[in-house]
């Protein structure tokens, strides 16, 4: 905080500098810090750890972008946003990008004027119920009381699902994941619904995760990804290709372990172009030549990040499933680097 808030508040009326019409990329470089909107707290995707350091799968995307642009994965200011504040924060320029398990939908893209730069997690909405209820399918939930996070697409999917199946339910709207947990655990609602990944993360934080089951139905498509403001294509490209670089790195077998060795040059021209030892991809983006190398060095490639934060060996325990590389039967498919 080099400029004090106090002084800033006092003098802002007099000194309000005219808007610099420069692009976000230049702003970030000039600031030396990336303002990245994240979730207020969802284990595995974005939550401060015991030392107050932000950790998680979405957080890692922020760090990778910061590393690619500024060469420093710690040059990120994490701005926690709720479902309500996230879009305003992005639209008003408070944050440069939003990496907060946000579903890519038509209206958000077209009507709210945001640019989804890609998908970092293919998700779908699921239901979690206590085992003792003996429910095995979402269609048996007639008359159930359901906790939902308001302001998310899950709320709308839920209404559609129950209308389509002609069964009734009782919605209990909740603002944040943290508030939903005690309500669900004390039995104030029978069912908790959100993205399947969120359910797994929430269940991981329970005292007895085994007492709860996630129902097999996935009632919606929830492609989650980072987004930026509409209209700033240069900045959108930077975030888009940083994400693609992480995905491609896994496909080509570039890991944080062999990164140094590979960046010296390999016989695969694709890897060479990615890591900057061949071609001028970095320059085209307005970044340094080793931008992708920096991004991968920040936390590893897509697969490594997945394993570290939400993979099967973590408390969240998600399988790769749809989020495997296309070569392994998943949906991850990075466009070619050339």
């Amino acid at each position: 905080m080099n400029k004090s808030v106090f002084l800033g508040a006092l003098t802002v009326a007099g000194l309000a500098a005219g808007a610099a019409a420069a692009g976000t990329l230049d702003d970030v470089k000039a600031r030396g810090k990336l303002n990245c909107g994240v979730v207020t707290g969802l284990v595995g995707f974005g939550a401060p750890d015991a030392n107050g350091e932000w950790q998680g799968f979405d957080v890692a995307v922020c760090r990778a972008v910061a590393a690619a642009v500024l060469g420093d994965p710690t040059a990120v200011e994490f701005v926690p946003t709720t479902a309500k504040t996230r879009f305003t924060a992005l639209a008003s320029g408070e944050i440069d990008m939003l990496a907060r398990n946000t579903t890519w939908t038509f209206s958000r893209d077209v009507d709210l004027k945001f640019e989804f730069v890609g998908i970092n997690y293919y998700d779908g909405q699921g239901f979690m119920v206590p085992k003792e209820l003996g429910v095995s399918s979402a269609k048996e939930l007639d008359g159930a009381t359901i906790c939902i996070q308001t302001g998310t697409t899950t709320e709308l999917n839920l209404a559609d699902f129950f209308r389509k199946n002609n069964i009734s339910y009782e919605p209990v709207p909740i603002e944040t994941n943290a508030e939903a947990q005690p309500l669900y655990l004390e039995g104030a609602c029978d069912v908790y619904t959100t993205d399947a990944s969120g359910l797994a993360a929430t269940r991981a934080a329970f005292e007895n995760p085994g007492d709860h089951v996630v129902l097999p139905e996935i009632i919606s498509k929830e492609p989650l990804g980072p987004l930026v403001r509409h209209g700033d294509n240069d900045w959108g490209d930077v975030v888009r290709w940083t994400l693609n670089a992480l995905i491609a790195a896994e496909e080509y077998g570039v890991t944080s372990a062999n990164l140094e060795e590979m960046s010296a040059g390999t016989d695969n021209p694709e890897i060479n172009r990615l890591l900057g030892s061949e071609g001028t991809l970095g320059e085209m983006l307005g970044l340094s030549a080793d931008w992708a190398k920096q991004a991968i060095a920040a936390g590893g490639n897509y697969g490594e990040l997945f394993e570290k934060t939400i993979g099967e060996n973590t408390p969240v325990g998600l399988a790769r499933g749809l989020n495997a590389q296309w070569t392994d039967g998943g949906l991850l498919y990075a466009p070619p680097f050339r």
Partner: peptide, 23 residues
């Protein structure tokens, strides 16, 4: 303070939420 004020400030200025709330 939370969702609207940012639209009325010059583009690029960045108030802390706490300052907006204080206002």
């Amino acid at each position: 303070a939370n969702v609207v004020l940012a639209y009325f400030l010059p583009p690029g200025t960045n108030f802390d939420l706490i300052v907006r709330v204080i206002i």
